[in-house]
Amino acid sequence: MATIRIPTPLRSYTGSQAEVSVTGDTVGAALNDLTRQHPALRQHLYADSGELRAFVNVFLNEEDVRHIRGADTPVKKQDRLMIVPSIAGGR
């Protein structure tokens, strides 16, 4: 199974797991399996529209999946996904 690295602030929703093993042949299926295993994560990754929140980036072996095939990007058993935020703000 592929693994997804969980950012520190979201580990309170994964029972403190830093990495979660997931099933699924695509990035979208892998993320679905993650939120199936840990449903409380869903609102922090997905907007009400069902799309990933704008600040959520997913990297497959350190490459942004938006530059591959997005949610349809194929995932193999040995792959490692990382969820990383973009950040912005200001007064």
Binding site: P7, N57, F59, M82, A88, G89, G90
Partner: peptide, 21 residues
């Protein structure tokens, strides 16, 4: 964030955040 607007805005891209992680 774009130069000229940084006195009230900041931004760090996902790629920069990946490197930081």
């Amino acid at each position: 964030w774009e130069v000229g607007e940084q006195s009230h805005r900041y931004q760090v891209s996902g790629g920069e955040m990946l490197a930081a992680e």
